[in-house]
Deep mutational scan, measured.
Amino acid sequence: MDALKSAGRALIRSPSLAKQSWGGGGRHRKLPENWTDTRETLLEGMLFSLKYLGMTLVEQPKGEELSAAAIKRIVATAKASGKKLQKVTLKVSPRGIILTDNLTNQLIENVSIYRISYCTADKMHDKVFAYIAQSQHNQSLECHAFLCTKRKMAQAVTLTVAQAFKVAFEFWQVSKEEKEKRDKASQEGGDVLGARQDCTPPLKSLVATGNLLDLEETAKAPLSTVSANTTNMDEVPRPQALSGSSVVWELDDGLDEAFSRLAQSRTNPQVLDTGLTAQDMHYAQCLSPVDWDKPDSSGTEQDDLFSF
């Protein structure tokens, strides 16, 4: 819950932080000083300027060897085509990944977070970031790969997607708890209302004896509580940590079903599988986004697919 609360507080303090972009060759504004600060901008989305290598189908939802083989196929196909790589912007948030063309600003792909089953910074092609997700059109699994400016960037994108998945799962947990509370309150309110109706004398007997209905007592009954809980029953509950912020979080049926399955089948359902080692994760978390744009010590960066 700490990640969720800190993310909400950060967004309320400075929503404009989320509009910064990394990996864009110096076009961005001043960047936060450390990885923790940038992680807090996830709610509205972190932007990464990358190059799209392509996509291939895979048979399993996750796995280092599986993704490595898929990336190898994608890279080989991209090299064989001889075409310049498409420059894209990857927007990562707890909602998922939005992929747009840098030149036309046209939407290429919009992947809900619950469809993503794996992401990684490839070991062999260490400047490549990739994720595996279920197609929104059918049940097939797709591996999408992107060329980053350097290994640090690939690791940073991988960690960002993993963190977005974690925050999304926490949102789901909060929403589920809130819905259970509202359902319980609604049920209790309905029981109270039913009890009051059972003990209320029939209207005919009131008229016969000349008694008047006590409207004041009726007004004191917990009807307002019942209506408050039943009027918006169809509205999706939102985490309290975000009250007053500009973010509107809505959970669709697909996300609810997917996270429910994860909660039942996995020990740590909030953790998205990645190909990063503990050492890689520690190294990337210690980086400032400013470091992502620094040239690798191995030599001059080449803006070309064939540089790796």
Score class of each variant (00 low, 15 high):
90 L>R: 09
290 V>R: 06
248 V>A: 10
169 F>R: 01
171 F>E: 00
233 M>N: 05
254 G>P: 06
138 N>A: 15
90 L>C: 11
88 V>P: 11
191 D>V: 03
137 H>V: 05
301 E>C: 08
108 I>S: 04
67 S>P: 13
54 G>L: 03
143 C>D: 01
226 V>H: 05
12 I>R: 15
302 Q>P: 07
275 G>D: 09
304 D>T: 08
177 E>P: 09
178 E>R: 15
24 G>K: 07
112 S>E: 00
88 V>K: 12
165 F>T: 01
31 L>P: 14
19 K>W: 12
283 Y>T: 07
301 E>Y: 11
263 A>Y: 13
136 Q>F: 05
262 L>V: 08
154 A>H: 04
32 P>Q: 02
274 T>C: 02
132 I>F: 15
35 W>A: 07
239 P>V: 03
183 D>C: 13
44 E>S: 10
143 C>H: 08
278 A>N: 06
14 S>I: 00
252 D>C: 12
106 Q>M: 12
286 C>W: 00
148 C>V: 00
194 G>S: 02
147 L>I: 11
232 N>Y: 09
190 G>F: 08
245 S>I: 14
141 L>A: 13
157 V>D: 01
238 R>M: 05
145 A>V: 11
61 P>Y: 03
302 Q>R: 02
126 D>G: 02
134 Q>H: 11
201 P>H: 15
114 Y>P: 12
256 D>T: 06
201 P>N: 08
259 F>K: 04
115 R>W: 11
221 A>S: 06
88 V>S: 14
18 A>N: 03
38 T>Y: 12
186 S>E: 08
93 S>C: 11
30 K>H: 08
229 N>L: 13
104 T>N: 00
88 V>N: 01
307 S>L: 02
10 A>E: 14
79 K>C: 05
61 P>D: 00
17 L>N: 15
176 K>D: 02
85 L>N: 11
66 L>S: 12
25 G>E: 11
87 K>D: 15
40 E>A: 14
182 R>F: 10
232 N>G: 09
87 K>Q: 08
92 V>C: 10
54 G>N: 05
272 L>D: 05
194 G>W: 11
276 L>F: 07
39 R>T: 08
65 E>Q: 09
90 L>E: 14
116 I>C: 06
50 L>R: 06
103 L>F: 12
13 R>Y: 11
130 A>F: 01
73 R>L: 12
152 K>F: 11
201 P>R: 04
287 L>T: 03
186 S>Y: 01
193 L>I: 08
206 L>V: 14
256 D>A: 14
282 H>I: 01
191 D>W: 11
88 V>F: 15
167 V>Y: 02
66 L>D: 13
302 Q>F: 06
116 I>L: 03
303 D>F: 03
35 W>S: 13
56 T>E: 10
185 A>N: 05
220 K>G: 03
27 R>V: 08
147 L>Y: 12
86 Q>M: 12
27 R>F: 01
287 L>W: 13
292 W>S: 00
106 Q>I: 03
244 G>W: 03
214 D>F: 02
102 N>E: 04
265 S>E: 03
151 R>F: 06
